[in-house]
């Protein structure tokens, strides 16, 4: 199924409490080399056939306007994936 993958991350300068909690747990279990964890979202948009350029453009718009909130998040990737 061809897909468009949208990846959304909390903004760099924003506290990511989820990531922080996971980082603390990793540190407790001895993974000292990991200095920080940040947690975002991977969203898959499925298509019946390989998305066209205009569908990719449309997906970028959806990613910016609905799938992410620009106040707190950044869209870090919008790309086509085949498998």
């Amino acid at each position: 199924m061809p897909k468009i993958i949208v990846q959304v991350m909390p903004k760099q300068d924003l506290l990511d409490p989820q990531g922080k909690a996971v980082a603390r747990a990793l540190e407790r279990s001895g993974h000292k080399a990991i200095s920080a964890v940040r947690i975002g979202k991977r969203i898959e948009l499925h298509y019946a056939t390989t998305p066209t350029d205009s569908q990719l453009q449309e997906a970028r718009k959806i990613a910016e306007s609905f799938l992410s909130n620009g106040v707190i998040e950044d869209v870090v990737e919008v790309s086509i994936e085949q498998d």
Partner: peptide
């Protein structure tokens, strides 16, 4: 309201989870 852009800013998970 913030998601509708009727008010500015955003609301995120409480500081202490």
């Amino acid at each position: 309201l913030v998601e509708s852009h009727l008010l500015p800013g955003g609301l995120i998970r409480n500081e202490k989870q």
